[in-house]
Design a protein around this nucleic acid. Structure first.
Length: 416
DNA sequence: TCTGACTAATGATCCACATAGGGTT
DNA sequence: GAAACCCTATGTGGATCATTAGTCA
């Protein structure tokens, strides 16, 4: 199935915008949603890599594929062998985030590409080799970046990103907090070195692609992967693709060591009745972690926890408002999990501190909401829909013009 | 516990025809 | 190379039928 971007029609779509009910490539996403303040508020998320039509909710770290709820359920909900796959929620965003911010949002994009890897990941990979190698201080105005070491020697990068990712839903700010591996913090914060070498290097084929070099010489925090240069990027796509195919680009721009490709990486879903560790994690943000509904009502942040080989990060996003409807669940993976209670794949909590009645109530609410949920149908050709809407029928089937019909959508009459 | 009957949910199919898109002139 | 023309495949919604899932006796 060869789906294309709904806007340009030739690039492979990467993100899904529910407000527009459109699948867009990154370039068009940028163009469309930078048009005005309203469009910037559209929340977008990754596109399901299986059905290519629904917003992805989770990322299966084992299959390295982003899945919508339906495909995830199909792939993991019923299969005993796959149901144990580790999955992480996929957060949505609004505004016009830089690729650095996107990489923070979706760190798995920088993992090693699987054979036949999607072009969307290539696009992101291409973005990463934009000419703009800047410091973290080059985040857009209104954003503040601070980098600290905590007591454990772990760097903490706090990106107050009000103007971008956090402003889409309820106006509240979202704090992106990354705890980077130790080696990454050796780089002085705020240093601007525009003389940093570009990707190409004459000595070796892809010298910068050496992971060791990357980790020691490259700091993701210093790379502003600005999306403003899409055309330029695509214009040189061949060279960059060549680089990418050699397996380097994604590692080049791995969010320090924060990569979902790390087999130890664990994605956890903040849901009622889920694992204790995660529930603990959301406690600070939510005064009442025992109820998914209360989570929603509090408009609290969903928290995504990763534990990695070296990196330990927590991402918190404000992705939900009381305006969210049932259909909105698909917009934001984390929020959907919050809203729906325990997901079907959630393993039994061995250390459950919840009462069984509370748990069963959550399951009931989940089933009820799942039952009433309707997936959007994507109409590709409005003109055809408009015609079908007024076409006369016999028992639901279209009839030739002038033939007898038993159903006329326009006046609900019969011709016989 | 197994089986059959029943109900509900879900998916596939059909229809005509405008239109997109590729191929040819 | 551009334009005109021809041809084929596609997609659109409601009704219907077939299949699957769930419940209960």
């Amino acid at each position: 199935m060869g789906y294309n971007c709904d806007f340009c029609g030739h690039q492979r779509p990467v993100v899904y915008c529910r407000s527009d009910a459109a699948c867009l490539c990154l370039s068009c996403d940028r163009n469309v949603h930078s048009a005005n303040a309203l469009s910037r508020r559209h929340s977008r998320t990754l596109l399901c890599e299986r059905c290519n039509s629904q917003p992805a909710l989770v990322r299966c770290t084992e299959e390295r594929v982003s899945l919508c709820e339906n495909c995830d359920w199909i792939g993991h909900g019923t299969s005993t062998s796959n149901s144990t796959h580790k999955r992480q929620t996929i957060n949505c965003y609004s505004g016009c985030p830089s690729s650095a911010e996107l990489s923070s949002l979706w760190p798995f994009f920088w993992q090693s590409p699987a054979p036949g890897e999607s072009t969307c990941e290539k696009e992101l990979g291409l973005m990463s080799i934009t000419e703009n190698i800047e410091t973290a201080s080059s985040f857009p105005p209104g954003n503040t970046v601070s980098q600290n070491k905590n007591s454990a020697g772990v760097a903490e990068v706090n990106i107050d990103n009000n103007a971008y990712m956090g402003s889409g839903w309820d106006g509240s700010s979202s704090i992106l907090e990354l705890r980077s591996p130790p080696q990454a913090i050796d780089q002085p914060a705020g240093v601007t070195d525009t003389s940093l070498p570009k990707v190409s290097c004459p000595q070796t084929k892809h010298p910068l692609l050496c992971e060791d070099d990357l980790y020691h010489d490259f700091n993701m925090d210093e790379v502003d992967l600005n999306l403003d240069n899409y055309e330029e990027l695509f214009g040189v796509a061949l060279n960059h693709s060549e680089l990418f195919e050699n397996g380097g680009i994604e590692s080049l721009f791995r969010m320090n060591d924060l990569s979902a490709a790390d087999s130890d990486c664990r994605g956890a879903v903040a849901a009622e009745g889920s694992s204790v560790g995660l529930v603990n994690a959301i406690q600070p943000a939510c005064s009442n972690g025992a109820s998914a509904d209360s989570v929603m009502s509090n408009k609290t942040d969903s928290v995504l926890c990763f534990t990695g080989r070296q990196a330990h990060s927590s991402l918190s996003f404000s992705g939900l408002t009381g305006e969210s409807s049932g259909a909105d669940y698909q917009d934001c993976g984390a929020s959907s999990m919050l809203l729906m209670g325990e997901p079907p794949w959630c393993p039994p909590c061995t250390e459950s501190s919840f009462q069984s009645s509370t748990r069963s109530n959550a399951v009931m609410r989940y089933k009820e909401k799942k039952k009433t949920r309707k997936f959007e149908k994507r109409v590709r050709y409005a003109s055809r829909k408009a015609r079908a809407d007024v076409r006369k029928r016999v028992k639901g089937r279209f009839v030739k013009a002038g033939d007898a019909y038993d159903y006329d959508p326009l006046n609900q009459t019969q011709s016989f």
